[in-house]
Design a protein around this nucleic acid. Sequence first.
DNA 1: TAGATTGTTAATCGATTAACAATC
DNA 2: TAGATTGTTAATCGATTAACAATC
Lengths: 211, 211
Amino acid sequence: MGSAENAVSKATISRMPAYLRYLKGEAGKGVAYVSSSAIAAALGFSAVGVRKDLAPVSSQPGKPRFGFEVRRLIEDIEKFLGYHRWTNAVIVGAGGLGRAILAYEGFENYGIHVIAAFDSSPAKVGAVGGKPIYPMERLKDIVVRNSVRVAILTVPRSAAQEACDEIVQAGICAILNFAPVYLHVPEGVCVKYEDLAVSLAALCGECTEDR
Amino acid sequence: MGSAENAVSKATISRMPAYLRYLKGEAGKGVAYVSSSAIAAALGFSAVGVRKDLAPVSSQPGKPRFGFEVRRLIEDIEKFLGYHRWTNAVIVGAGGLGRAILAYEGFENYGIHVIAAFDSSPAKVGAVGGKPIYPMERLKDIVVRNSVRVAILTVPRSAAQEACDEIVQAGICAILNFAPVYLHVPEGVCVKYEDLAVSLAALCGECTEDR
DNA sequence: TAGATTGTTAATCGATTAACAATC
DNA sequence: TAGATTGTTAATCGATTAACAATC
């Protein structure tokens, strides 16, 4: 529990979701054990790399001749990634994307409760998929009362910085930003840019590059 | 034009969108020149790193005492990232997320035309934001006719692999996958996992970690 | 036992940082 | 000119790969 984390590199952490996806797929097919080389082949990594990644995360060493126990490893990675601590999140901006995310149920698997959305337009107030959409005025109140730490920002580009300021004002410390704008935030607040167009453009690039 | 790219590292490329976002923000404020140290401070990078990143991309070296010309640099980075070559894309799965993305106009800035969506349910056929939603049967035909190379997969988890197979069958070579499932694809097809829950969970982690 | 697979130590590779000369 | 800022060469750092002993 020391502050010097047990030396798991960022690169390793970034690969964990890929392991998790693959392992869940195998578990679904009823596979009980999987070797590092099988994982590596499926994911395009090296087998040694896989073992090195899994070593500090797995609660039980892999068994020579068998490999890793799939179910147990899934459990370990989820625990490692913190999917077992629950976090409350809100959505700011109830347009098409915001509403789609509000209705999406997949977050629960990752220990995230998306509890509500907010929009400055009164016309948008209401509910989607059983979850409420409130007017912006209520943001701070609800954030504080539910100790929400994370916001998903899905307003149009032009409204992004203003909405961001309100979010920060409400006391939120992490923003997943879908607006393609650079956001100015005070120190201590982290922003992750989830720019669909950039992702897609990058993919196009990769696709074209190797021919 | 040689196949050995002019040595721009992957790490450098991954930072380009951040530069672009920041520069566009400054351009919007009317700033004409910006120094590497200003960029670095705003983005949390090192000034030397910024200069090294920009050197191979910028068509004109930075001017001592001034820095880089904002407008020109934006132009250069966009060109470098290929936002000027147009690519056609389609969406597979016209649920909430698929429709939201279909209606989203931001892709045009990145040289991407999202031309249509497809869904296996006849009830979903129609249009959103002036763009058509076709039945899945028409996928291959339209992909071939418009030489679509990229697909955005927004079907539910359970339908993902099957839809993916159809996409690959239609001749697409890159998939942006929003379903939280590991996809099996033939060699040469690249898949990017855009797992909202993972992004959000990672953000929560970062947010919690440093206290 | 024999063989497959693991975990670890050492070597390589790539990217970042530090130091400094070049330039407007 | 003086000073701020650039681009580049060398040193450091971190992550990946290679080699190999340990294990069921």
